[in-house]
């Protein structure tokens, strides 16, 4: 479904990605884990066309989307829930969801709304509240719900666990599994919370300094002693 080939990218003169190859198959949950500054967010942003790749290709269902502007990529069935949630704080929850549906057929709006609200009943209660007044976990639900409003085939999630309490993180990850299983949405999940992400994902990649260092199934990576010491048992020094 999504294929990244030898992707190079960066900001100005600073190169952040040095030839990334990875693939996300139809119906999978694939996760990308790595430390702060490894280039995870840059990879997601580059897939979405901002910043633009300096070398390499991004293929979505076989179509080359490397040179497309961001807003056109979003119309190809790829939804991106960016890092830090980025909901619209002064607009109501309903309006936020509405903004998620701008690329979708307006006739589907009420169906899609029902679908998202069934998935996140908390949003139903807060429909006319301003986005900025929600708690962190609710904002994350809103960000994911907003991304789902466009009926995407592929959902890119950038650190949905950022700044959330452990219990809330677990809840969000359960919901991601549910979205993948029930709604047949392929998920590409970028995470620092390696333990939860690897438990959830079918496959995973490990990124170090802008390169893919390791790849394998979620369970394999979870059992890998190197991963355990680097990402799961606290600290690179171990």
């Amino acid at each position: 479904m999504l294929k990244v080939e030898n992707l190079h990218s960066g900001y100005g003169r600073i190169q952040a990605l040095h030839g990334i190859d990875l693939e996300v198959g139809q119906g999978e949950i694939v996760t990308l884990i790595g430390a702060n500054g490894a280039g995870k967010t840059t990879l997601l942003m580059t897939i979405c066309g901002n910043p633009r790749a300096t070398q390499g290709r991004v293929l979505l269902d076989g179509t080359d989307i490397t040179r497309l502007p961001t807003h056109k990529i979003a119309r190809l069935g790829l939804a991106h829930s960016p890092e830090g949630r980025r909901i619209f704080p002064r607009m109501s929850v309903l309006e936020n969801l509405q903004m998620g549906a701008v690329v979708a057929d307006p006739r589907h709006f009420s169906d899609d709304l029902d679908r998202v609200l069934t998935l996140f009943p908390r949003l139903q209660e807060r429909l006319n509240q301003r986005g900025g007044t929600l708690s962190g976990g609710e904002q994350q639900m809103l960000a994911i719900g907003r991304a789902l409003m466009s009926r995407p085939a592929l959902l890119l999630l950038d650190e949905p666990s950022l700044g959330l309490a452990p219990l809330v993180v677990r809840h969000i990850f359960d919901l991601i599994a549910k979205i993948n299983a029930e709604q047949k949405v392929t998920v590409f999940l970028v995470e620092q919370n390696a333990f939860h992400a690897l438990k959830l994902a079918h496959r995973g990649y490990v990124m170090v300094n802008g390169r893919i260092a390791l790849a394998g199934s979620g369970a394999e990576l979870l059992a890998n002693p190197e991963i355990r010491s680097h990402y799961l048992e606290g600290g690179v020094q171990a």
Binding site: T70, R75, E95
Partner: peptide, 24 residues
């Protein structure tokens, strides 16, 4: 209308607008 809501969304967050398929 969609255009008016898009203005307000742009005021709130330009990056989010783009990732939702709006052309800034």
């Amino acid at each position: 209308l969609p255009i008016g809501r898009a203005w307000e969304a742009l005021r709130e967050d330009e990056i989010a607008c783009r990732s939702l398929g709006l052309n800034p």
